[in-house]
Amino acid sequence: MKGEVCIFANTPIWEPKKIRYRYPGEAWQEIAGESYLIDLLPILGGDYPTTWLVKLGDLIVDFSLRVFSFYDCSGNSSVVHTKYVNTWPAQFVGTVLSIRWMFGEAGGPGGGSVFDCGNGLFGVPPTIWISIIYKDTNNNIREAGISDYAAIIKPPGNIRSWKMISRSFKIHFTDITRPDDPPKYQCQFTVFDVFNQVISNIIRDDCPEVIVVPERCYYKAENERLVAKIFQSFLDPPLRIEYQGNCATVWKDSWPLSYFPLMIYKECTDNPNCPPPRIRLDNKKCKEECRQCPPGTAIKVLLGGNIACVDAFGCIIKEIKFKPGCNSYDCICG
Rank of each mutant, 00 (worst) to 15 (best):
V301C: 03
E26C: 06
F234H: 11
I141D: 02
Y329H: 14
D180E: 13
I316K: 12
P214Q: 06
C117R: 08
K252D: 00
D206F: 01
K83M: 14
P42L: 05
I128F: 03
T95E: 12
K284I: 12
Q186K: 15
P182L: 11
G145K: 14
I31Y: 04
Q244R: 15
G94K: 08
V93K: 15
A151S: 14
P238Y: 07
A90L: 08
T174S: 05
Y259D: 09
S74D: 05
I202Q: 10
C331N: 09
I171F: 09
I141Y: 14
C309M: 07
D72A: 11
D330L: 15
C286R: 09
G57W: 03
L235Y: 10
P109F: 13
Q29M: 11
N158D: 15
I132Q: 03
Y71W: 09
L65A: 10
K220Q: 13
P295G: 06
F234I: 10
F260D: 14
R100C: 05
G314S: 07
P214F: 02
V210D: 05
D175A: 05
N76I: 00
M263W: 00
G75R: 07
V212I: 13
G3E: 03
I176Y: 03
E222C: 01
S258A: 10
G45T: 06
T297D: 13
C293I: 06
C286D: 03
S35C: 00
N223G: 03
